[in-house]
Nucleic acid binder design. Structure first.
Lengths: 348, 348
DNA sequence: GTTAGCACTCTCCTTAATTGAGTGCTAAAA
DNA sequence: TTTTAGCACTCAATTAAGGAGAGTGCTAAC
């Protein structure tokens, strides 16, 4: 499937893609000959283009229009032509790091990085929260707010803080609360969230009931919160630069814009999209390669970010298949590094 | 300025507005005569329409087009014709309350209500977080996460929970932390947030320094957090149903859509918009009446919601001036009531 | 293998013609 | 005095037609 193209075909394919990325319209042989030093005449280019079309790298919207890269063409471009080096201007990385280094709050860092990425690429950016399943519960604490109202605070070692207010049908004495705190700390802290499943929590409940005289309903409320707080499907996705998609000529059609915005409005969909990307460091999905139907005319560039060498979340951009891959790849790469660093630092 | 219209003019104005809300296009005399039982001929209606135009209630996009309501026309309609009764179907209120009554988290309630409101009205909904200035600080607590990393948790009586991770350049003993907790509880809890200003916090700091041997930098970090956590300008605004604006024919122009979406992307702008609304219970701003330039072709219907009889936040919708006011007014009214109730309940 | 030349194709833009909804005015009817 | 019918007029929106332009594929010569 991935045949090697002869150098001239390769150069022509690259030129077409680069030109198409700029102009967003079909590219003809004359334009190509004029703008790129290919040292051959338009007629020759035409022959090569016909070959490239036969091989599936190009498409023709209609007879007598120029050629447009196909998904396969972009795939070849991304795999065989584009270098994956980070080529940000020197100092950019340091500047961004400095700009955000004072942020302590993980959620702030994430949404800040989403905005930064969308500003850099001029596409819509999405970041998933650090995945809890590979995180450990660093701290669990219960605080009394009022007679029958408690605040449960959960902190993971990725720095995610989650709090839930719990209303009880009975009040707890200060002693019982401090016992409960000690007990929960012992049983739950430093455990992998993945291990805090219903089975384990049931056990803990049993043990607790044996030691402390509590109403049956209380602990049930707790572990509802646990399960809800960090459940795998419910990863929050942060968006940045939604309005950038409107600047793409392929979204000149109002119907398409509507579809896209409705998609981005639904958090479950974003989850599905960002989680459909496999685990590799930097993954690119082009057009039809996407699993989610509604974005089969879009491309995704998604990187995984790491906290203390553990893969925890994804960050990427979504744009038209006609995307400035070299620039975007570099930006996503850089920002995912910075994101990992910032969170590691903030969560101590 | 607000002259009383004779009954026939009033009926005609009402008919034109109702028809225009449905069709989104200029209304002619013949259509009106056919669809509404006005018992006069089109010619008579034409004369009345000319009068209404002279009075400023109607506008004509161009000679030989029908008439369109002006801002003044809508204002008259809203003030003099539309009843402000809640006319939701029986049971709807109870259903919504039941649906959301299990939510304990104030942020969840707010974003849920934003979504609900946008679904009911088919316009974009916005809700501001409970305003902190009139809230009291119910609970302040510091938890140790690691040697030199603390978690500061703040809870207001409106149920808003705010947490910040603070990294120190020194570590604190358990004793000092528990002293700090007791001290801060005494000094800060049950105070109005409005009173926790820099001046007061400076005082507290002084007193603390006198009693406890702490590095000068520590408390500074704390009150940076305090000020940042609940500052008045930084009210978060929750959006729901952004894509609904695209369904309005007045946004058939891509440029307008872009402008609008860019506007909604900026949180500061939303703040400015929702805070430009004065304090009355249910306020309607029509077109030019809006202060923010970019929404002078939109209408706002905003209600204030209350927690224990204190005005704390705003909830409303934004849509084209050609808005279904009666339905929207009722929905906003109902949802603001429910929102207040739900938050009151959740925050005990 | 490469290139020039040429007929052919298809979209896009501009211009012109047509249609249709709606008005304002005038004069007659109520 | 108010209402209505009749009619000429206006203007946006739609349709039709006629280039203009960009590009291709093919053939024949280099």
């Amino acid at each position: 499937m991935v045949e090697e193209l002869d150098p001239r075909k390769k150069r022509i394919l690259q030129a077409i893609i680069q030109e198409h990325i700029i102009s967003a319209s079909p590219i003809g042989s004359r334009t190509l000959a004029k703008k790129y030093n290919l040292d051959v005449s338009p007629a020759t280019i035409r022959n090569e283009m016909a070959d490239l079309e036969d091989l599936g790298y190009l498409e023709q919207p209609h007879t007598s229009a120029g050629r447009v890269p196909s998904d396969k063409g972009y795939r070849y471009y991304v795999d065989q032509i584009v270098s994956r080096e980070k080529n940000e201007a020197p100092g950019v990385i340091e500047n961004i790091e400095n700009l955000y280094q004072d942020l302590q709050d993980v959620q702030d860092i994430i949404s800040g990085m989403a905005k930064m990425l969308s500003n850099m690429t001029h596409y819509t950016a999405m970041v998933s929260e650090p995945k809890s399943q590979v995180s450990r519960l660093k701290k669990v604490e219960i605080m009394q707010l009022a007679d029958n109202s408690l605040l449960l605070v959960l902190v993971t070692d990725a720095g995610m803080v989650n709090n839930k207010i719990i209303n009880l049908d009975q009040s707890l004495s200060t002693g019982k609360i401090s016992y409960l705190n000690k007990f929960l700390s012992e049983k739950l802290e430093n455990k992998l969230l993945a291990n805090l499943d219903t089975r384990y929590l049931k056990e803990v409940e049993k043990e607790l009931m044996a030691r402390l005289d509590l109403s049956v309903g209380l602990f049930k409320q707790f572990y509802n919160e646990f399960e809800g707080a960090f459940e795998p499907g419910g990863v929050k996705v942060y968006l940045g630069g939604t309005s950038y998609i409107l600047e793409q000529p392929e979204f000149n059609d109002l119907e398409k814009v509507k579809k896209m915005l409705r998609l981005l409005d639904q958090e479950e969909m974003l989850n599905k999209i960002i989680n459909s990307i496999s685990g590799s460091d930097l993954e690119i999905k082009i057009g039809q390669e996407n699993e989610v139907e509604d974005i089969k005319n879009c491309s995704l560039v998604v990187a995984t970010y790491y906290i203390s060498n553990r893969a925890v979340g994804k960050i990427g951009v979504i744009g038209p298949t006609r995307m400035e891959y070299p620039r975007v790849i570099s930006s996503v790469d850089v920002i995912s590094d910075i994101l990992g660093k910032l969170i590691s630092k903030a969560s101590g």
